[in-house]
Amino acid sequence: MCLAFPATIIKLDGPNATVEFHNVKRDIRVDLIGDCQIGDHVLVHAGFAINKLDEEGARETMETWTELIEIMEKEDKKLKNDQSPE
């Protein structure tokens, strides 16, 4: 029930907006996100934008991902080396 989909604001009129996602347009409300403008990427739930997508945050998440993978690959390699016969 907490499903939300990402969409882009293409029209704005006070608390009302139109968003587009994969060529589907939908009228929503933007009361919950404060300042916003056309072109903003938002997450939509039950007819309301519940937050803007933060590009920097997205990049940070990707960095964590990359770091995590590097650590795991290193550990994986170490494990394989430890297991290989001397």
């Binding site: 009361d31 919950l32 996100i33 404060g34 997450l43 519940i50 937050n51 803007k52 997508l53 933060d54 590009e55 945050g57 997205a58 940070e60 998440t61 964590t64 991902w65």
Partner: peptide, 20 residues
Amino acid sequence: IDNLYKEVVTEEGNRLALGF
């Protein structure tokens, strides 16, 4: 707690929504 959804989740949450 590790927040891996930083593109939308902040420490303090959506203050405007919580206010409503």
